[in-house]
Amino acid sequence: MSAITLTLNEELVTARQGQTILEVAREHSIHIPTLCYLEGLEEMGGCRLCMVEVQGSARPVPACITKAQEGMVVATDSETITEYRRMIVELLLAERNHTCAVCVQNGSCELQTLAARLGVDHVRFDYLHQQLSMDASRERFALDHNRCVLCLRCVRTCDAVEGAHTWDVRGRGVTSRIVADLDRPWGESVSCTDCGKCVQLCPTGALFRKGATVGEMVKEREFLMRLLERRRAIQGRQS
């Protein structure tokens, strides 16, 4: 693969052709906040937290999808960008109920960590106070719509890694909801294999193990890359 050179935060760096800006930044220990992105899953570009400035582009671009190009000049942070990221986190906090004090994920939640890192100390927007339901019909796991940020990690994992495609999205706009099997209670889903991958990858307390109490839900995400690498190795041996 051919190498390219680009400027990242005023430093010249080299990258491989085909790498995204986010991958290059991570290799150079530059932090870009992300939420919907998860290494190993197909990018969806939905949360818009990874937006960075590229010289010559009228609008910021999502680092998780945009490929690094020869001669590109990228700034991963600026006053505007930081403010935008803060507003996006505030919008997420205002959209549903994120009362950390009573959440299973308190202390190890990706949304909470993002908010802290970006210095979100209050939300300037109206809380939408949507009264959403909780689906606790499955034996081992539960889904609390109030904590869901619609990152679709669960949908993407279930489809591409587990191959069950239990999860999908219903509705649109602010009324979008995660649904199991054409919108039935999770407990009645016939496609769900109870593998728990979605639960482990969910960034917030939306998907959790039943019985967990406040702050008890610590998730293990490393399994995804381990699994994918093993699969790749097996495929390599077979072909």
Binding site: M44, C47, I88, L91, L92, L150, V169, G171
Partner: peptide
């Protein structure tokens, strides 16, 4: 809004 991205959805 389709609901895919946060700025538009919320």
């Amino acid at each position: 809004s389709c609901g895919k991205c946060v700025p538009c959805r919320t």
